[in-house]
């Protein structure tokens, strides 16, 4: 089902439930992975995914078709995830701990994460990046989204995204530079 068809179903009160069901079916996995790669934990990603779809349902009347429905949903997910991380960061400051360290610690113990050394090191290197840069990297590197789509999701210009991605790859390379087992080959 296309974005347009789903939106038409969602716009009509009588078919809204059906449209929503189609929307969830279409986007749940993509949005889940977008969130999961940022928060790392499945439990948090699950909660956020539910919140995102509830927000989409509640605010569908505000969608003014300036962009694709899916881009709008990604954008809500992106903002919601960043807000969540901001809150977590504040909480960790109050506990005199470091959010990234505790995320890594939890990741190590997470049985829903491939605990191989190389994957762990890669996630560790990713956590060095600022949140927005990490999001750019994830969307480009894992989801292979074109910069134009990422720009619409993140509401920034394409050129700044390109440089952000460039810096992100550079920083990851630098953090992993001393590891002999890892060789890099990033897409541009």
């Amino acid at each position: 089902m296309t974005d347009k068809e789903i939106f038409e179903l969602l716009s009509d009160q009588r078919t809204r439930e059906r449209g929503f069901s189609a929307l969830v079916k279409e986007l749940k996995e993509k949005v889940y992975w977008q969130i999961r790669r940022m928060v790392l934990s499945h439990e948090d990603a699950d909660d956020l995914l539910q919140d995102v779809f509830v927000k989409v349902y509640q605010n569908i009347e505000n969608f003014n078709r300036d962009s694709n429905l899916s881009t709008w949903v990604y954008r809500i997910a992106f903002n919601h995830t960043l807000n969540f991380l901001k809150v977590q960061k504040r909480k960790s400051i109050l506990k005199f701990s470091n959010l990234e360290d505790s995320m890594l610690e939890n990741l190590k113990a997470d049985n829903l994460f491939d605990s191989s050394e190389i994957e762990y090191k890669f996630q560790k290197a990713l956590l060095v990046l600022p949140k927005k840069q990490r999001a750019v990297f994830n969307l480009r590197y894992y989801d292979e989204l074109p910069f134009s789509d990422i720009a619409r999701i993140m509401d920034v210009s394409e050129s700044s995204l390109k440089s952000s991605y460039h810096f992100a790859t550079k920083k990851i390379q630098e953090s992993l530079l001393n590891d002999d087992n890892i060789k890099f080959e990033f897409i541009n």
């Binding site: 889940y32 995914l49 994460f113 191989s116 190389i118 890669f122 590197y141 060789k183 890099f184 080959e185």
Partner: peptide, 26 residues
Amino acid sequence: KYQTINKMEKKNNPFKVPENYFEDFE
């Protein structure tokens, strides 16, 4: 000895979800 992160990541997503998670989510 050498793993290429790009290729490795594309093939293996390091994160997993519980069984039937996406089916049940809806």
